[in-house]
């Protein structure tokens, strides 16, 4: 498999505090890879550096072999990286389909068009994307009345508009009910399989991670302490100590 994303020795420090300390890894084409770790381990900082929201203190990021370190989010998006946010960032003053149309307007480079009516543009195409995430019935509702899980799916549709080769998803299932989590990750897995997209995601729900991720990386205090298959990570004593815990408290109860 070819490498889509390669990260070399990525580092970020804020006045004396080192948030990410020399992280290196890669994501291959068609791979669904999870990045897990305790809160404050540097997952979001890592993500924000990959997507250009934050400038790394040191290290390099390569997309398809070309360097994207320090580029602006919109430049990285142009190169084929889509992202969804931990706290959804949809446009509250637009309808569901207009959110997707907005992404398509940007995709077709029509942002500085003054003549057309925006809500007439690319409506059919937008509807296709809504169908992918099963939101077609809510197309004309205002985004502000959508349930949280639907917003997450809408973000996924938006991220797909530019036909990305890599999707970065920051806690895609946070705040969702267990069943909805599984449905969303199943949808993501389908997209990975059908469209050959690669996905890198952070997650706290271990059921989701172990059920769907092809590979798992564990970040702790800004450094990677594991990178491997589900079984390797689960049985890694260091990972158990800092992150997974013994699980005794709940297991006893669950099997009682």
């Amino acid at each position: 498999m070819t490498e889509i994303l390669r990260v070399e020795n990525l580092k970020k420090s804020y006045d004396g505090f080192i948030a990410v300390n020399g992280v290196s890894f890669s994501v291959k084409q068609g791979e669904l890879k999870a990045l897990i770790g305790p809160n404050g381990a540097g997952k979001s900082t890592c993500f924000n550096m990959l997507m250009g929201q934050l400038r790394p203190t040191a290290g390099e990021v390569f997309l398809d072999g070309s360097r994207i370190t320090g580029q602006k989010p919109r430049e990285i998006w142009r190169r084929g990286v889509g992202r969804t946010f931990q706290i959804t960032g949809t446009y509250q003053s637009m309808t569901v389909i207009e959110n997707v149309q907005m992404a398509l307007i940007s995709h077709h480079r029509r942002l500085f068009s003054f003549g057309a009516r925006a809500w007439r543009l690319y409506r059919d195409e937008a509807m296709d994307f809504l169908r992918t995430v099963d939101l077609q019935d809510q197309a004309d509702r205002p985004c502000s009345v959508l349930a949280y899980g639907d917003l997450k799916r809408l973000e996924l549709a938006i991220a797909l508009c530019h036909r990305p080769r890599l999707l970065l998803m920051d806690e895609p299932t946070a705040g969702m009910a267990p069943q909805a989590r599984i449905a969303l990750m199943q949808l993501t897995a389908d997209i990975v399989r059908d469209q050959g997209v690669s996905v890198l995601f952070t997650e706290h729900d271990m059921d989701v991670v172990f059920a769907h991720a092809h590979h798992i990386m564990v970040l702790n205090r800004g450094a990677l302490i594991a990178d491997g298959s589900a079984a390797e990570v689960r049985n890694n004593p260091k990972v158990q100590e800092v992150y997974l815990g013994g699980g005794t408290l709940f297991k006893e109860e669950a099997h009682a």
Partner: peptide, 14 residues
Amino acid sequence: SEGIAPVIVEQMAR
């Protein structure tokens, strides 16, 4: 327990 590491969740329960 939302959004925190499993090991902290155990501590929270205690």
